[in-house]
Design a protein around this nucleic acid. Sequence first.
DNA 1: TACCTAAAATAACTCGATTTAGCATTTATT
DNA 2: AATAAATGCTAAATCGAGTTATTTTAGGTA
Lengths: 337, 337
Amino acid sequence: MKKKLSIVDIANSLNISKTTVSFILNGRAREKRISEELVERVLKYVKEVGYKPNSLAKSLRTGKSNIIGLLVQDISNNFFATIARQIEDRAYKNGYKIIYSSTDNDTQKTQELIAMFRDRHVDGYIIVPPEGIEEDISSLIKDGLPVVLFDRYLPGVETDYVVVDNLFSTYNATRYLIDKGYKNIAFISFNNQQTQMADRLSGYNKAMTQSKLTTSIKEVDFYQDEKLMTEPIMAFLNEHPETDAILFGNNHLGTCGLKVLKKLDKKVPEDIALICFDDYEVFELCNPPLTAIAQPIDAIADKVITLLLNRLNTSVENGVKQQVILTTDLRIRKSTK
Amino acid sequence: MKKKLSIVDIANSLNISKTTVSFILNGRAREKRISEELVERVLKYVKEVGYKPNSLAKSLRTGKSNIIGLLVQDISNNFFATIARQIEDRAYKNGYKIIYSSTDNDTQKTQELIAMFRDRHVDGYIIVPPEGIEEDISSLIKDGLPVVLFDRYLPGVETDYVVVDNLFSTYNATRYLIDKGYKNIAFISFNNQQTQMADRLSGYNKAMTQSKLTTSIKEVDFYQDEKLMTEPIMAFLNEHPETDAILFGNNHLGTCGLKVLKKLDKKVPEDIALICFDDYEVFELCNPPLTAIAQPIDAIADKVITLLLNRLNTSVENGVKQQVILTTDLRIRKSTK
DNA sequence: TACCTAAAATAACTCGATTTAGCATTTATT
DNA sequence: AATAAATGCTAAATCGAGTTATTTTAGGTA
């Protein structure tokens, strides 16, 4: 194994000081009044032998790593995977690498991951925050580290974030169902207090009460295991046979719901109408195709990374945090009459 | 921003040398005959102030990073995302972090990423290799770095890898179609020479020629953009109206195919039968549900990370590389008569 | 008391870069 | 000619650890 060249090797080979090499490689040649001729000689040699500075050493000295830490809830969920992918592309184009992990919405795991990222001198953070992580995020911000949240925000914490207008989205979808004549509309959601879910619930509630309809809400716990997710949904539908429409809180619940309805042999939309928050391939291809509240995935990814790159570039700590609220798109397909 | 504690701060606070602190923290106290009493005092204090060694400095000195580099083709593809997720979990449980990226099957991008990983002193590599990357992989191996490939392998390069029995899988699926009486079976695949695709093609060819049937192969280029993928497929089907069954080379082609058939208003399986390599939610939920060749995702992820962890733990460079070939499962659903 | 040895701890070097402060020359100014 | 300023480059300190080689201390022995 031929050992890697260091800046000292370069300096020695050229009989100059490593300081000079460093200045030249960091584009400070002009500033440091190093002769054109020497600059060229060094650059040529460096290229010739393929020398690449050791970025660990560089990070140790400068405190910068050119790494962005990305914490999503679950990278195997299509919504997060697609966003992660786009963020990754933009990051690379701007000279940043991504180090990522799934939080599983687990507070302790997330704390450990944030600590790990910090430890690695990550330059910026993109986080889909679980509940109870307020302090850790605040601490990052207090220490001047750029943080962008998305999908949900933390009410007590002032930070940049990108979310969609959840409340209006479900309000709008519920109104759509009501206008179609559905009366027993159920909302199936996750049992957690995060803003995105709370807002989706509020939107549903608002539309229902406005129309003087009785709400029917089922909150289930999140599990990776499919059975543990489908069983409570099935139980709920059996207990509420009057249900004529369902609004699902997210794509995961929607697909579980589809499986349940298939098992129960319910016809969509004859027996029951469906709308799901989040859109993806499954909903477009299943039969009938599902009406869905589509989040603007491209725009979310774009805003998130743009916000973070801005923070990273303007080292000035601009106190004003940006809150971006994007709108969703109700894609009407054939799962409603 | 309170600055982070360093080992020197700890040493100073306790009026001892940082060497001693380092020895104690690295479990070499006994070996270095440091008194029980001091060990306890140091550990207690370190815990008290929450000191964590700077891992960059540590990596710089030791050459180890406890980071695994993961290069998949596309993290937003369900197959890779699910495997990535499981690898991530196992890695974390074993004290390793993951740094990942999508290669897009782009050789140059992959080369840059490998260089970047190397540069960051990544301890081990998990790679879904694109074509033309043989030399870079060989170079890693020559330098004693653990590398595990999956999904495909590189014929000229001796390394650990985990793949499925692609040839038999498509042979078997094609036979299944033939036995059902289909005669004009098309194979739609990607236009590349990688082992997994080549083997899938061979399996199809073998079954067809064995039964003296004429093969009908469409190879399309890969694009992220959906339109660019669906158009050639649609063109192919229009040119070959006799086609009574299609075998798709992977999940991406399968979903594109589903969309095309929907547009052409073809009935499955009445007008045309379908089987797709790779299985996932869409195929289970679409109507009719699709017969699919399911790869053993859990087993693949498990084997990959187990192989790598073994290499990482047994610093001995055991020359014998392991090749793991797993079997697939033909999940018969209703997309065939 | 002087000497030796094992135990306990440490000074100094290293990893590979960046950065600060400064040293010779040469050129310009008075 | 003496001094100041500009030019071109570099020695040494630094980041925060791990590691090697060495010193100090305590206790036992002759």
